[in-house]
């Protein structure tokens, strides 16, 4: 089963929920943890994985062979991302804008364009206790997150996991990096906070997961600090509130230090196991569940 943790708004506690869910279930089932927030990955700060392998992620960008180029400018006209500028005497590639679609190389009438890999980020894989771990990082100044997210999603595929659980820590927002992170999940947990910001962005995130057809439930973090509007919204929309984590300064202080809430606060270990029971129960009752997914048992 693949469970993604997303939020719309940043800083609501995605990583906290994802990391502590993984820790609460560690040992009870095979777990892999994919930190797909490749712009600002944070899960490693809490899980302290031993990194075993590191690989560069690259994108094929065009290289123009000046000796073959006749300056016709077709490449610049077909490039939807404005990554090629053609002048009669020279053709200039702007690799930062290139999405790697391959159109220019395919369509150049002179065969003057080849592609060469440009590094846009890296993926690291390793182990944190019994948890298989992968995360990625975009290169500084490299704007394209989705290909790096995709590489993280595929990083542990070769290992196979049988009936285990994959937890995906998604980036904030609702645009392409989030889609690349949560697409194909069996369930999406939306972490929010009980404030107008949390509510507004939860509404956007719900719109996204519904468009992607992913069943979702909500975790309200820092419950009690704001107002009741998030709970009211969830009941109006028929979205289950899976867990409320009460606002408590001692939780915030533990998080600040990079601590693990489930180790320091046994009540939260129980709460996160309860979260998993609700997620897996919803997977079993859902019509889309594939075979293997029903094997996920009680813990």
């Amino acid at each position: 089963m693949i469970v993604s943790i997303a939020s719309g708004k940043g800083g609501t506690g995605k990583t906290t929920v994802a990391v502590n869910l993984a820790l609460a279930l560690e040992g009870a089932m095979p777990i892999r943890f994919l930190d797909c927030d490749v712009e600002e990955p944070n899960a490693h700060l809490f899980l302290h994985p031993e990194i075993e392998r590191s690989e560069k992620v690259s994108l094929p960008v065009p290289v123009v062979d000046e000796s073959k180029c006749n300056g016709c400018g077709k490449c610049a006209r077909v490039c939807a991302f404005h990554a090629i500028l053609a002048f009669s005497s020279r053709t200039i590639v702007l690799p930062e804008l290139c999405h790697g679609c391959g159109g220019c190389a395919l369509l150049c009438p002179q065969g003057a364009i080849t592609e060469s890999p440009k590094v846009i980020g890296e993926v690291e894989t390793g182990r944190a206790g019994d948890i298989r771990f992968a995360h990625g990082r975009t290169g500084i100044g490299s704007p394209l997150a989705p290909p790096v997210v995709k590489a993280v999603r595929e990083a542990l595929d070769k290992e196979g996991l049988g009936a285990g659980l994959t937890i995906i820590d998604a980036p904030p927002g609702t645009s392409c990096p989030v889609v690349a992170s949560i697409k194909g999940s069996d369930y999406c947990v939306l972490v929010t906070e009980p404030t107008p910001f949390g509510l507004n962005d939860l509404g956007l995130a719900v719109g996204l997961v519904r468009e992607l057809g992913i069943p979702c439930g909500v975790v309200i973090n820092r419950a009690g600090l704001g107002d009741e509007a998030v709970s009211a919204y969830c009941s109006r929309e028929g979205i289950p509130v899976l867990l409320e984590i009460p606002y408590d300064r001692k939780y915030a202080e533990c998080y600040a230090k990079g601590g693990r809430l489930v180790d320091d606060f046994p009540e939260l270990r129980g709460a996160l196991k309860g979260l998993w029971r609700k997620i897996s129960a919803s997977g079993e009752s859902g019509a889309e569940g594939e075979d293997g997914r029903r094997e996920m048992g009680e813990i």
């Binding site: 500084i140 704007p143 904030p172 990096p177």
Partner: peptide, 10 residues
């Protein structure tokens, strides 16, 4: 600004 270090931040 938005969070992150990607395209909309740049």
């Amino acid at each position: 600004g938005p969070p992150g270090v990607g395209c909309p931040v740049i």
